[in-house]
Design a binder for these strands. Structure first.
Lengths: 310, 310
DNA sequence: CTGAAAGCGCTTACAG
DNA sequence: CTGAAAGCGCTTACAG
């Protein structure tokens, strides 16, 4: 009755009358070995009957890395992108016998080091890396086909298609490596579309401060007829600020969000935004982390969710 | 110059002229040993000079568990509670030389098993467990002092204090172990406050469906003057539905949210809600997981963030 | 085809 | 006070 001891390779070996090495060869389908079908069978049956599951820690010690991938994700990145990305990453990793674990909060080289030392994960990923660089999303850099570059352009395109040529970009008041990239891509897209490169301003969290920031910005740039949000959070703040300032949306000024976080439906006017399904991005990241081919994985195009703010 | 090999205990032993055992004793401050100050010093200096960091995987194999705690967290639980909880959990764990890793998505016994097998974490936590049961939050069960029970009561209290005695609870249309608990606690609180036990209804994600659900409910229960949301998400949907139905908030009907997710400020009227700082809950969970005393940790009381919906 | 042996890096009785 | 040895559970050259 006592606590049931863990079933090890040794137990399987004993039960099937072979050595531990042979069990390992069979269970791992070692291509360098030729084991008789009978032995194979005996071993597999024994493993199944005993409910044997390899001990990941021992295996990690031997192999140098555990079957775990860690994803670092900064605060304030929640949205449809991150949710679908995590879903795809998790699923693809699971399909290759690995597990995904997430680390929240701000990340430093030390915190990454501590994880490496603690569990020796196969890889430590940084959220948004693939998306940002467009690596493996296309071969032009930046992801002009299915990365941040393409989606920044899509956002601007929607505005331009609705007659807005003087656009401003609203940014969060926090740090993010994505900010510089977004501005660069949007500027590039504007040049391609033959409209002026958008100016930008920060939209602070605090409501009054945000209204003030928007007012100030529009005073300096009265020609602006549309605001493109860095993300939905920022766009929502701008929407609120505009209401506080008595500016009618979208008649006087249009607003578009980015990365449909689900809350754009609860405000009035509802928020038009860019929706990115990043499941395939997640799968690509998983394959890259495991050193596998990514061939055949093509992310679907992003789309604009048209609501009422532009 | 080739890849730098990992510094191991053996290197430290060699550098300080003692055995690996002695190094281990010194570095782990083994109370069962008496090592000369000189040796101690020599070992510590060598470890520092070489930049020695214990290999967590080897240690985990030997000790039976890694210095990692895994937190399972279901989708749709994002809010101030979860953010502050994770922050506290992470900080307290770090203070005790452990790291927190999070697993997102839906969890099954198998998925937990796979993590256990993969990295043998010290503990696998389920988000909301402590909060739900009130274990260690007080000794009455349910957490009537600082747990879900207390906060459910606080939400209702605010409504009652504003003259609302006929209250309804709006629920998500998804599964959650928290739902039954919330209803139970709210009912209990209502009885204590001498008001009728609130009826409940589900507020679906889809906007039209939600408006329909709310309309239908109010037709059946026209006496209801206030809606208490299971969380801010649900409350936000109810607010939108009410607007779609042409009901004025808070004049005709009041709405209060739960677990301030930050978006209640972006809607109109802005959403009054219950704000719970769960950092201490997180710290308590960490200590429980590590088998430490939780004495002295007292969660601050929750508070109502008064905005304009009630 | 199969097994004995080494070793991943650590901790901890055990023997001096 | 300190060291040699065993062992956590696995994989993989190496020798038959």
């Amino acid at each position: 009755m006592g606590a049931s001891r863990r079933v090890t390779l040794k137990d399987v070996a004993a039960a099937s009358g072979v050595s531990r090495a042979t069990v390992s060869f069979v269970l791992n389908d070692d291509p360098g070995q030729t084991i008789s079908a009978a032995t194979r069978d005996r071993v597999q049956r024994a493993a199944r009957d005993l409910g044997y599951v390899p001990h990941g820690v021992a295996r990690a010690l031997r192999e140098g890395a555990s079957r775990v991938v860690v994803l670092n994700i900064d605060a304030g990145m929640e949205g449809n992108y991150s949710r679908s990305y995590v879903r795809g990453l998790d699923a693809e990793l699971a399909a290759h016998d690995h597990v995904l674990l997430v680390r929240h909060g701000h990340h430093t080289p030390q915190s990454t080091r501590r994880i490496l030392d603690a569990i020796a994960p196969r890889a430590v990923l940084r959220f948004g890396e693939t998306y940002l660089t467009g690596h493996e999303l296309d071969d032009l850099g930046g992801g002009w086909r299915a990365g941040l570059a393409a989606h920044s352009a899509l956002q601007l395109r929607h505005l331009v298609d609705h007659g807005h040529t003087r656009v401003a970009v609203a940014l969060p008041d926090t740090e993010s490596p994505l900010i510089a990239a977004r501005l660069k891509f949007t500027a590039h897209a504007a040049t391609n579309m033959d409209v002026p490169v958008p100016a930008s301003f920060a939209a602070p969290r605090d409501r009054a401060a945000c209204a003030e920031a928007v007012e100030e910005f529009l005073l300096e740039a009265p020609e602006v007829t549309a605001v493109a949000g860095f993300n939905d959070d920022v766009a929502l703040r701008v929407l609120m600020a505009l209401r506080d300032l008595g500016r009618r949306v979208p008649d006087e000024i249009a607003v578009i969000g980015f990365d449909d976080n689900g809350y754009g439906e609860y405000v009035s006017p509802t928020l038009t935004t860019v929706h990115v399904d990043a499941e395939v991005h997640g799968r690509i990241a998983a394959r890259l982390a495991l050193g596998l081919e990514t061939g055949g994985l093509r992310p679907p195009p992003a789309r604009v969710v048209v609501r009422h703010s532009v």
